[in-house]
């Protein structure tokens, strides 16, 4: 009753909120198909900016560089971040724990200019040539903290008795982790990898500090173009990136939704089986023999 009275308010706020979030992106996409060079005036439908984008070698090189940095840094960040998550949730107390937690959470909110500058000065101090590897190391460092947060929030809800059961059945701690814990938390590790990957794909500021003359990432390229004004190619490029990411995110969410629905279905089925089991053993058996084996 109370909820219904509020609902006009809810619908309005949700509509306005999502409109605010999505209209700029939609306009960006729409105008990527604009024939006119003037980005804000509609001049008819065209895909010419896409073809000119693919012919722009500088963009393509930057895109390739970004992908390489993204894949390498996301992979290392996932490994290090998962270790960090295990330390936070499982290692108990050790000297320097507060410092460690600080080093995990601070990069999440640390202004990028500070992180970028400090990493650059370190690279200079140790005389490391700036380029692909410095960008990658910089990205590993800040995205491993995001990975640690994602994975540790999964680990705290992880039923530790599963690990204890594995120990009880003869596993060492090490093999219990690989045989039991890792397969179960794998979905959130995958999500963490994707997050690290997009963070790397997205980063302008830290990459600008950490890169050298030879290495330009896509955001750096976009930024240098955007500073000079609106470019229809940028709209086209943005559209491609948005579409790729959207497909990825939507697919992932549909897959998880399917999984939960499937789980619910099996639970209902199992409950029905229990009920049948109690009614009659013979019906129970016949039911199973006719039932296709459900398995994933």
């Amino acid at each position: 009753m109370n909820i219904n009275r509020f609902s006009w308010f809810n619908i309005t706020s949700l509509t306005l909120g999502f409109a605010f979030l999505y209209i700029p992106i939609l306009l960006l996409i729409v105008f990527s198909f604009n024939k006119s060079k003037l980005v804000t005036v509609w001049g008819g439908f065209s895909t010419k900016w896409y073809s000119s984008l693919f012919q722009n070698e500088a963009f393509m090189d930057a895109a390739l560089m970004t992908l390489k940095v993204g894949v390498v840094s996301a992979t290392f960040a996932t490994i290090l971040g998962t270790l960090a998550a295990l330390v936070i949730t499982r290692a108990g107390f050790f000297r320097g724990r507060t410092l460690f937690a600080g080093m995990i959470y601070a990069p999440l909110v640390m202004p990028e200019v500070i992180t970028g500058l400090s990493l650059l000065l370190l690279f200079v101090a140790i005389g490391w040539d700036r380029g692909f590897w410095t960008i990658t190391v910089a990205h590993i460092t800040f995205s491993m903290c995001y990975v640690a947060v994602v994975v540790s929030s999964r680990l705290v809800t992880f039923d530790e008795s599963l690990e204890e059961a594995a120990l009880d059945l003869g596993c060492t701690k090490f093999s219990a982790f690989f045989q039991v814990t890792l397969p179960i938390i794998a979905p959130s590790i995958a999500a963490a990898w994707l997050l690290a990957f997009t963070l790397s794909l997205d980063d302008l500021v830290i990459a600008s500090f950490a890169s050298g003359p030879g290495a330009t990432t896509l955001p750096m390229k976009i930024y240098s173009q955007v500073r000079l004004g609106l470019k229809p190619e940028i709209n086209a490029l943005s559209t491609i990136l948005i579409v790729i990411v959207s497909i990825g995110v939507i697919t992932a969410s549909i897959v998880t939704k399917r999984a939960t629905m499937k789980k619910r279905f099996y639970e209902q089925q199992a409950n029905a089986q229990t009920a049948l089991h109690r009614c009659s053993n013979s019906i129970f058996k016949r039911y199973y023999n006719n039932c296709p084996k459900g398995g994933t």
């Binding site: 979030l21 992106i25 960006l28 302008l204 976009i222 940028i234 990136l241 990825g248 939704k257």
Partner: peptide, 24 residues
């Protein structure tokens, strides 16, 4: 779940691109 995904989705798309969109 859908609404949460819709809130997160822009976060996954490039920050730079979203700022750029406002210039236009």
């Amino acid at each position: 779940a859908t609404l949460v995904m819709l809130i997160i989705l822009p976060f996954w798309t490039s920050f730079l691109i979203r700022v750029y969109a406002w210039i236009g």
